[in-house]
Design a protein around this nucleic acid. Structure first.
Lengths: 251, 251
DNA sequence: CGATGTATTGAGTCGCATCAACCCTAGTGG
DNA sequence: CCACTAGGGTTGATGCGACTCAATACATCG
C-alpha cells in the first residue's frame, strides 16, 4: 500500500523567505542559491485530518517539511495495538534520503500542509548540498534524544507520572509560543485526542482519562472542556513527573 | 561528575587498515588522507566491566568508537528506576559533535576498548570532512529506527512478547557472526545479565527470569547454564513476538 | 432532534511488581 | 580439601496498578 495522492496546492509561499518555518526546517542553513534550487522543486500538499501521509511498508514518493498542522508517526501490532513513536510539528522533516520504503505509519491528526519534494530529486540535491546534511543530522539527533527520553517514560514511569510528564512537555513547548498570563500559570490546548495520548503513552484511553481526572481533582491542573488545560503551578506538576524532565530552552 | 580518566593504551592498530571494524565504524567511508588525520589524533582506552564511560550531566571529553566489548546507554530516575536506551556494540559511535554534556550514563558491561578522540579536535576534523558527516547521519538514523522499534516493545508488548523479541533480535544478530549448526537451530550466548535485560525491557529481574523459564518449559528455547541459549525453531519463537519484528539483513 | 464519535466513570480481572526465601556458582581463605 | 561468603539467578506468595468490559455523559453535526 502506498499513500493516496495528496491534493496539490498553488505554492503558498512563492518565496521561501516568507515561509514561517524557514529558520527551523531542514533548509534553515541554506544559502540563497540552494534555497532557489529547493524552491524550484518544492510543491505544497494538504492532508485532511485522519489522512495517511505514509504507510508502513509503503513506498515513499515524497519527502518534505510539515508546515502547518500535526501528524503522528506510529507503528502497530497485528492485533491492533498501536504505539505512537513521535509527534510531527511544523518544521519537522518527514522521510529520509536513501529510504525508499517507510517503516512507519504517518498520519495527519489535524489538517496538514506539507512542503514536499519528489524523493529522487531531493536526494540528488541533498548529495550536493553542504548545508542540508548537517542540518538533517542535527534534527535527527534531536529526534533520537526525544525517543530516548520517551523510552524512559514508557519503560519505567507510572501512568500518573507519564501524564504529568506529557503535560509539562506540552506546556513548556507552548510557553514560548503564547504569552504567559501575568502570573506564572500556564495555559494551553491539548493538541491530541485521548486516543492519541493513550497510543503515545502506551496506555488505554480509560487510564489516561482517569489520571487526568485525578490531577484535576487534586488541583494540579484545571481542565476546561476536553482540551483546554491550565497549570496553576508548574513546579508542583513537575514534582509528579518522576524528576527526569528538564524543560528545554527555545531554539 | 565526570568520567574517570581511563587507561591509555599503546595503539592497538597502528594502521587503521588493520582495524577489524574499519568498514562499519564512523570512518567507514573515509579516504586515505582523512583516515591518516584521524589516525594522528586517535588513542585507545580500556574500561573495566562496570566502569562508567560517561555520566549523565557530566562533561564529555572524548568521543569515539567502541572497538571491543559491550556498553549500555541508560538513564535513571531519582528513586533508582533505570531504563537502558541502547546497547553499544563494536563499531558503534559514542558521543556527538556539538554536545559538550552527556545526557546519559554510558557504562561498560564487559571490558571495553575504545578508539577515542579528544572532542574538540574531532569536531574540527568533522566540520571539514566530507565523509564523516554522512556516515554519522546514517548511523544516527539507524539508532533512531532501533529506538522507535523499542518504543513499540516498551509501550505495547507483554513481558512474554518482550523476551521473545529480544531473543529473536540477539539471535539474528549473531546469526551472521557464528555459523549455523547444520540444521536451522540457532545457538548463542546472552550478552546481558538478568539485571541489564530487565532494565532494557522495562521489567524486573524476577519477571525476566520467570518468562525465560516459561519459554524453556514450553520447549521454545533451551537454556544451558545462565547465558547459553539454543533456539530449536526460530519461526516458532518469532510467532511469540507480537509480529512486528523482521530480522534485518546484514550490513 | 436524534445520531455518531469522544470522553468519563464504575466494577471486576489479570499481569507484573514487590517482598522474601532459596539455589547455584565462583572465589576466598583456613 | 572444604567451609564460608558474595553475587547472580530462580521460585513462591501476595498486592497493586493498569487493562477490560460495560454503562453513562458530553460534544458535534446533520
Amino acid at each position: 500500500m502506498t499513500a493516496p495522492r495528496p491534493t496539490t496546492l498553488a505554492p503558498l509561499y512563492l518565496d521561501c523567505g516568507d515561509c514561517p518555518i524557514r529558520k527551523q526546517a531542514i533548509c534553515a542553513r541554506c544559502q540563497p542559491d540552494e534555497l532557489a534550487e529547493l524552491n524550484a522543486i518544492k510543491s505544497y500538499h494538504t492532508y485532511k485530518k485522519g489522512e495517511m501521509i505514509a504507510y508502513a511498508g509503503g513506498e515513499v514518493r515524497h519527502v518534505g517539511t510539515l508546515v502547518t498542522g500535526l501528524a503522528s508517526i506510529s507503528q502497530g501490532l497485528e492485533d491492533g495495538r498501536r504505539q505512537i513513536m513521535g509527534i510531527l510539528l511544523p518544521s519537522d522533516f518527514v522521510g529520509a534520503p536513501k529510504r525508499k520504503i517507510s517503516q512507519y505509519d504517518i498520519q495527519a491528526s489535524a489538517e496538514v500542509i506539507m512542503c514536499q519534494f519528489e524523493r529522487g530529486a531531493f536526494e540528488v540535491l541533498f548529495e550536493r548540498s553542504p548545508d542540508l546534511g548537517p542540518r538533517l543530522l542535527e534534527m535527527t539527533m534531536n529526534e533520537l534524544d526525544a525517543a530516548w527520553q520517551w523510552m524512559l517514560l514508557l519503560g519505567r514511569k507510572s501512568a500518573r507520572e507519564q501524564i504529568a510528564t506529557f503535560l509539562c512537555m506540552i506546556a513548556s513547548k507552548s510557553k514560548f509560543l503564547k504569552p504567559l498570563t501575568g502570573n506564572k500559570a500556564l495555559v494551553f490546548d491539548l493538541p491530541l485526542s485521548r486516543e492519541m495520548l493513550a497510543d503515545y503513552l502506551g496506555l488505554t484511553i480509560e487510564t489516561v482519562s482517569r489520571q487526568i481526572s485525578t490531577l484535576k481533582n487534586e488541583g494540579l491542573i484545571l481542565v476546561q472542556g476536553q482540551r483546554h488545560i491550565i497549570i496553576p503551578d508548574f513546579s508542583r506538576l513537575l514534582r509528579e513527573t518522576g524528576r527526569d524532565y528538564l524543560p528545554a530552552a527555545p531554539d
